[in-house]
Write a protein that binds this DNA or RNA. Sequence first.
DNA 1: CGATTCCTTGAGACAGCTCAATTTCGGTGG
DNA 2: CCACCGAAATTGAGCTGTCTCAAGGAATCG
Lengths: 263, 263
Amino acid sequence: MPRPAIAPPKLSRPAPEGRVLRNVEVDCVDCPIRHRAVCARCDAAELARLEEIKYYRSYEAGRPIAFAGDEMGFVASVVRGVATISQTMADGRKQMVGLLLPSDFVGRPGRAATPYDVTAVSDVTLCCFRRKPFEALMAQTPHLAERLLDMSLDELDAAREWMLVLGRKTAREKIASLLAIVARREATLSLAALRGGLAIDLPLTREAMADYLGLTLETVSRQISALRRDGIIVLEGTRRIRVPDIRALLAETGDDMDGGLVA
Amino acid sequence: MPRPAIAPPKLSRPAPEGRVLRNVEVDCVDCPIRHRAVCARCDAAELARLEEIKYYRSYEAGRPIAFAGDEMGFVASVVRGVATISQTMADGRKQMVGLLLPSDFVGRPGRAATPYDVTAVSDVTLCCFRRKPFEALMAQTPHLAERLLDMSLDELDAAREWMLVLGRKTAREKIASLLAIVARREATLSLAALRGGLAIDLPLTREAMADYLGLTLETVSRQISALRRDGIIVLEGTRRIRVPDIRALLAETGDDMDGGLVA
DNA sequence: CGATTCCTTGAGACAGCTCAATTTCGGTGG
DNA sequence: CCACCGAAATTGAGCTGTCTCAAGGAATCG
């Protein structure tokens, strides 16, 4: 990984005030992420207390949600959309360190300042809780703390799996791994899609994928083309990818193939 | 990252029964990691309940503590020594995904099987708790769950910082980053060492460092030699490294230098 | 339908890898 | 204390996967 000669001057900082505040009033009971978010294990009473301090906030695709070092006054659950967590070095090298999908938790109780940039990739809606009341509630609500612990441990596992991808996999394996991860998630959502192949709709630009995989965008593009040439994937437009045979894709990840996606 | 032509046949599996069980009876009150481990926030009563279910277990340097896929009947705190958490691919490529130092927590409440290999690097002593009683205790002891959440979030941050190292840093920066991390820890332990330079005693072989950094051991060796030639570090034997000027080392990590180690 | 952004592809450069000797270190027994 | 041994570390020479730089081509949006 060579260091770039010159720092790319990508320091444009779109005004954080560009966010759109849509006044979506959703009852927790009807919430699409009710059973997977941090509130998943809360009972009706606990939910009511959460409901008191919650509010929604939306961000357009491409907008920053927070910059590294910013004080965030709230923690939140992602309700809709995709956001990224990333780190940037002084000379512009960038590494995504997390992908925030619906039901994922944003922010850290007990710390005001984020150490990472958080950016909306698609249009994003957050279910926000002001930090202090949330922390207070967490102290009284074991269900909340338990669930957050579980989610954090899952994220730690995901981060560690990603360390293997970043440290030891080839460019082709990295691409395949990324697609496999997204494919796996799509597959659990629409189990029917297994025969006939499954379509991945991933909202990331080639550059974003490169930042996730520790590659350059050119290498990402080349490897995607190579996987296409080899019949592993089929492009349907530039952001939509169809996977005719998931096993073939998984075989390209370098992992043991007994991941249990297809029995 | 090219894939190796042949899987290195390093599948020797030293008998896990080789462990030495030293019967160290330590009162929690006298425990060296009392204030930093998972039990840090427990009061006397809670500590007493933990004391009932705890037992010590020791491993010699180089011994496995667990293999990926193993069922671990216990969770534990590292009391003394250094252990590594790593993943290995089918063809032998290996990536360390965590370093376990005294006070770090091993295992995951709620999951019996480890997804990782855990290996004692130096002689290691663990303070173990059988899984079930520990989980039960955690449900009743918010202090325990809170502390574990905090520790997990710290580990998640560390993992994410490491993702930047793996994905975007040059070989030289990777080495410098590893040394800086260890140096930083040494520095907090012995603040006096700041002038006159500080000595790092890191118990890792070149190969282990390579597995941590996503490099080959030859590259690790070459970069260490280069840092030595450039006067950034001084070797005192092969495992002991002296850092005459910490700022110079930090400057080599590629990070912003205002890490606050030296004001 | 022009402008902008995103994507693809090529040619050459180079960082880090592979393969292959040595050399040094750390321990162990004479 | 020294000689010896195996393991670990160093160093060299050449190779290759990925990066850099550069030029078009496709998609998207006002």
